[in-house]
Design a protein around this nucleic acid. Structure first.
Lengths: 210, 210
DNA sequence: CTGCATTTGTGAAACTTTCAACAAAGACCA
DNA sequence: TGGTCTTTGTTGAAAGTTTCACAAATGCAG
């Protein structure tokens, strides 16, 4: 128990928790109040044993013979992932992608709120995009520092990504979600994740016929 | 050799090939003509041993003492991933995200070309978005069938994702990249991959302090 | 209350993936 | 040419991950 709560959890397990959470929210929308590792597994295409083992890293959330209380499990997973608070997020890049991100309503109830939208282009600065006014990248450092923003989404052209990432890190950002199709170097203590639709498409074409 | 070319390649290896390709293209832009597993590894934060092992699944692409010819390796990887042809892709959903995807120039030279943009909303049908005219989902089946399109990107609300996915599969689509934050069930022979920025953010918040 | 059907949490086994180490090949310099 | 340096492809060991299988707990019907 006390030993377990200190143990290092494999990163691959952490990566699955958001998927569990997503499926649990869905079950909740369907008015269900209890679920099982089997039901979750069927929906996510993950074995029930894996789900039980993953959850067991954080303590016994379920009840034998019954399963898991959905509300309770959601609450616990949000606690584990530290999203029982709302994180402020900065978006850099007000191109088509940055604009789409800024309009997306899906961050709201999952732990994140977009606080600022930055761009370098003087033509874009000052423009109103949804509920945001595009701010100059030049003021990024001061704003992020001042507001203690820890998370940023990077939606700038590949050629600018490393430079902007450096500025974000310098401003105190500790987690970057990079949409630019290029690998970025950041200090080991800074989290980085990538979204590049083309890599997913290329992964799938390997298996296509013809 | 002949045995090797028939061996099953681990999926996790296939998933890394697009990353190698992306880094190689970058090196090429930098006017380099030769690279090594060490250089690639440094850039991608992957061990050189892993890169050599991954590549060795497909034959000996490198030369001892020298490394890998970038042009040659790019060509070979494109062949392995079957992106030495251009795949037609259908986009479903002409909301902010679908529009951003339709405008994105980054598919072009990496093996994909967006061929159609569909939506259910009668208000959107007929609208011009970049080089596309939004077409009704009702005609999706016939168009995709007729043109032999095998790949689709799904950018519709979560509540509609499963229904649209079913229609895509029925139309003959064999690979779906789903942007809706929900798990989709498809037949085993259909490839599916997910993009949900929130799961990435939630993964990272686990490691944040405070 | 008893017996049957569920379902969790877990230790051990099976399987997969990564890593370390090295022989062999090639480049290059003096 | 000989010696030194670099780098691949490969082997086997180590590390990590998933699956299996089952005791123990719970619910429920009769």
């Amino acid at each position: 128990m006390s030993a377990k709560s200190q143990a290092v959890i494999p990163d691959i397990v952490i990566g699955r928790l958001p998927l569990y959470l997503r499926a649990l929210r869905r079950l909740q929308q369907e008015e269900k109040s209890v679920t099982s590792s089997h039901e979750l597994g069927r929906r996510l295409d993950i074995s029930s044993a894996q789900i039980r083992k993953d959850l067991s890293h954080f303590g016994g959330f379920g009840k034998q013979g019954t399963g898991y209380q959905i509300v309770y499990l959601i609450d616990k997973l949000q606690e584990v992932l530290q999203i029982n608070q709302e994180w402020m997020v900065a978006v850099v890049g007000a191109g088509n992608l940055g604009i789409a991100i800024s309009h997306y309503r899906g961050f709201q109830d999952r732990g994140f709120r977009i606080a600022h939208l930055f761009d370098v282009n003087p033509q874009k600065i000052g423009q109103r995009i949804g509920e945001f006014v595009v701010q100059p990248v030049a003021s990024l450092r001061e704003i992020i520092r001042h507001e203690g923003i820890k998370i940023a989404m990077l939606a700038v052209p590949a050629k600018d990504a490393q430079t902007v990432a450096d500025q974000l890190v310098d401003a105190g950002v500790q987690a970057i979600l990079n949409y630019a199709p290029i690998n970025i170097n950041v200090p080991a203590e800074v989290q980085i994740q990538y979204i590049d639709p083309v890599t997913h498409l290329q992964h799938m074409t390997f298996y296509l016929e013809e």
